[in-house]
């Protein structure tokens, strides 16, 4: 059976990174020893187009550290797919900046995890990184490229959000807020508690209410939900269940394929060196955990929820890491509200 292609392939083009972020889900630093060659990467662009993929989000590690990134980016554009580049914004030389402008991506995104240098630099593991990322952000905005900012929230930077908000107000960037999950370098003791997660949701809702889209565009990522009884939707579009292997696809720099790059290694379901991408994608067994969800797959609380058919148990990555299985994401606003109500008597 031939499936519709993914809307977006999130592609780690290299694991090499010049920062050392405490929350990095892939523990990036050194390049993998077996990363795809330039020829393989270019062929993969063609193959992605071949399965009907509409766009590529190029990330890492730090994608701009891979020497042939412009060739890959250009091929993505040549074959007619959209391109977004997710960079840490650190050490973006003038020539790199020019190459980004030449490639003209649909979106360039930088990561800001603190409103002050002390916090951002501590989280990112490199002194001076805050100053650089802010300068990079300003250059992108000034250039007119559609620009986004990602903030990954954990215990260390929950209190930084209002300061980051001040920094972004009026810049015209889209601000994506996501919860840090305990993969890679992030340890469980830094993960937000459920109440802190609710605080984060309140922050997103309050900011959307307080500021117009002209002043600040803010949204929660896929792990900020779901179906609150109190708060308006935090995501840009309504949640429709985990899209791993449905409308999104994860690619590791060595050609490993998984439904979503946020998932841990046990979810790798093939490698393009061993099997064509088309075969992996169209395999009925691929990503069966999201493509064929039954009520019996859901955790008990999710199964009894009125939104179970739509939600299917929240984010797979959060569910796996925080509940030890899929389709039972405990970081659910609706669930937390029920727990809060219960604890209030």
């Amino acid at each position: 059976m031939v499936r519709p292609g993914p809307g977006c392939a999130v592609w780690e083009i290299t694991l090499k990174c010049n920062l050392n972020c405490m929350h990095c889900g892939s523990a990036a630093g050194k390049a993998r020893s077996d990363e795809l060659t330039t020829d393989e990467a270019l062929q993969l662009c063609d193959d992605l187009k071949g399965i009907g993929c509409q766009g590529v989000a190029m990330m890492g590690g730090e994608p701009l550290l891979r020497k042939d990134w412009p060739s890959i980016a250009e091929r993505v554009r040549e074959v007619g797919m959209d391109l977004s580049i997710i960079t840490n914004g650190y050490k973006i030389t003038e020539s790199k900046f020019q190459r980004i402008l030449d490639v003209n991506p649909e979106l360039v995104t930088v990561s800001i995890d603190g409103g002050h240098a002390a916090i951002h630099d501590k989280i990112r593991g490199v002194p001076g990184s805050f100053k650089e990322v802010v300068a990079t952000l300003r250059r992108f905005v000034k250039s007119g490229l559609p620009t986004g900012v990602i903030t990954t929230v954990h215990k260390m930077n929950l209190g930084e959000l209002t300061t980051i908000r001040k920094l972004l107000l009026g810049t015209g960037v889209a601000w994506q807020i996501q919860m840090a999950t305990p993969y890679g370098r992030l340890t469980y003791d830094h993960v937000l508690s459920k109440e802190e997660y609710y605080s984060l949701a309140l922050f997103i809702a309050a900011t959307r209410k307080k500021y117009s889209k002209k002043e600040l565009m803010i949204a929660g990522a896929h792990d900020m939900g779901y179906f609150s009884r109190v708060l308006p939707p935090l995501q840009v579009y309504p949640w429709q269940g985990c899209q791993a292997g449905i409308s999104t696809l994860g690619i590791e720099s060595n050609g490993n394929i998984l439904g979503c790059l946020a998932l841990p290694p046990e979810y790798v379901e093939g490698n393009i060196r061993e099997r064509p991408l088309k075969e992996i994608w169209n395999d009925s067994a691929f990503s069966s955990y999201t493509r064929r969800v039954r009520r019996t797959d859901l955790g008990s609380e999710c199964a009894s929820c009125t939104y179970s058919k739509i939600c299917k148990g929240g984010c797979s990555a959060v569910s796996h890491s925080m509940a030890g299985g899929l389709h039972r994401d405990p970081y659910c606003l609706r669930l937390i509200e029920a727990e809060l109500k219960k604890s209030n008597g």
Binding site: G7, G55, A57, A174, Y237, I246
Partner: peptide
């Protein structure tokens, strides 16, 4: 099976 593109929900969010 909604189709998303970069800058719409997955990958990252775009203006």
């Amino acid at each position: 099976n909604t189709t998303y593109v970069p800058g719409t929900r997955y990958g990252s969010i775009c203006p």
